[in-house]
Deep mutational scan, measured.
Amino acid sequence: MDVFMKGLSKAKEGVVAAAEKTKQGVAEAAGKTKEGVLYVGSKTKEGVVHGVATVAEKTKEQVTNVGGAVVTGVTAVAQKTVEGAGSIAAATGFVKKDQLGKNEEGAPQEGILEDMPVDPDNEAYEMPSEEGYQDYEPEA
């Protein structure tokens, strides 16, 4: 019985440690998101679009440190934060509304985080759909 109880105690310690790591990862992701939003706020009209992409990228980098179902929630929060940063930029006159959601080359930025393969159960990952990809044929 002692062996059984000791095993359960060790398992509990492992769960607590994993929860603490997840909590730490979420806190880091939130900190990076805040950094990115402050970065966007300090940019001029020309830099705002690039700044919004930076927020998304920093958040995406930190999301990889967070495991399990938390990833889905962090990704949703990050996307809403990026959308909010863009709205703030438009409201303050840093950028025109028609410039939001495009990178410096004018290509749409939507789907940055949505296409990231995420499995809350950590069982399997699927690649994003290939609808947006084109076949590449090298020139002879």
Results as ranks from 00 to 15, higher is better:
Asp2Glu: 01
Phe4Tyr: 01
Met5Trp: 06
Lys6Thr: 03
Lys6Val: 03
Lys6Glu: 02
Leu8Trp: 12
Leu8Gly: 00
Leu8Met: 06
Ser9Lys: 12
Ser9Asp: 03
Ser9Arg: 10
Ser9Gln: 09
Ala11Leu: 14
Lys12Gln: 05
Glu13Tyr: 05
Glu13Arg: 07
Gly14Thr: 15
Val16Tyr: 14
Ala17Ile: 05
Ala17Glu: 06
Ala17Thr: 11
Glu20Lys: 03
Lys21Asp: 00
Lys21Asn: 03
Lys23Gly: 01
Val26Thr: 01
Glu28Trp: 04
Ala29Gln: 02
Ala29Ile: 15
Ala30Met: 14
Lys32Val: 08
Thr33Trp: 14
Thr33Pro: 00
Glu35Asp: 09
Gly36Met: 14
Val37Lys: 01
Val37Thr: 01
Leu38Arg: 12
Leu38Gln: 07
Leu38Met: 13
Ser42Gly: 06
Ser42His: 08
Lys43Met: 15
Lys43Ala: 09
Lys45Gly: 03
Glu46Gln: 07
Glu46Phe: 08
Val48His: 00
Val49Tyr: 11
His50Trp: 12
His50Asn: 07
Val52Asn: 01
Thr54Pro: 01
Val55Arg: 01
Thr59Ser: 05
Lys60Gly: 03
Lys60Pro: 01
Glu61Tyr: 05
Glu61Gln: 09
Glu61Trp: 12
Thr64His: 13
Asn65Trp: 14
Asn65Gly: 11
Val66Asn: 02
Gly67Ile: 13
Gly68Thr: 13
Ala69Ser: 06
Val71Trp: 15
Thr72Gln: 11
Val74Arg: 01
Val74Gly: 02
Ala78Phe: 15
Ala78Met: 14
Gln79Tyr: 04
Lys80Val: 08
Lys80Asn: 03
Lys80Gln: 06
Val82His: 03
Val82Glu: 02
Val82Pro: 02
Glu83Leu: 04
Ala85Tyr: 09
Ser87Phe: 13
Ile88Ser: 02
Ala89Ile: 12
Ala89Glu: 03
Ala90Thr: 10
Ala91Lys: 04
Gly93Thr: 04
Val95Asn: 10
Lys97Glu: 06
Asn103Ser: 07
Glu105Gly: 07
Gly106Thr: 06
Gln109Arg: 11
Gln109Ser: 12
Ile112Asn: 08
Ile112Glu: 05
Asp115Pro: 04
Asp115Leu: 05
Asp115Phe: 10
Met116His: 12
Pro117Lys: 07
Pro117Leu: 03
Asp121Glu: 11
Asp121Asn: 08
Asn122Thr: 10
Glu123Val: 13
Glu123Asn: 09
Ala124Val: 13
Glu126Pro: 10
Met127Pro: 04
Glu130Lys: 11
Glu131Asp: 10
Gly132Glu: 13
Gly132Met: 13
Tyr133Ser: 03
Gln134Asn: 08
Asp135Glu: 13
Asp135Val: 09
Asp135Gly: 05
Asp135Lys: 05
Pro138Trp: 11
Pro138Leu: 05
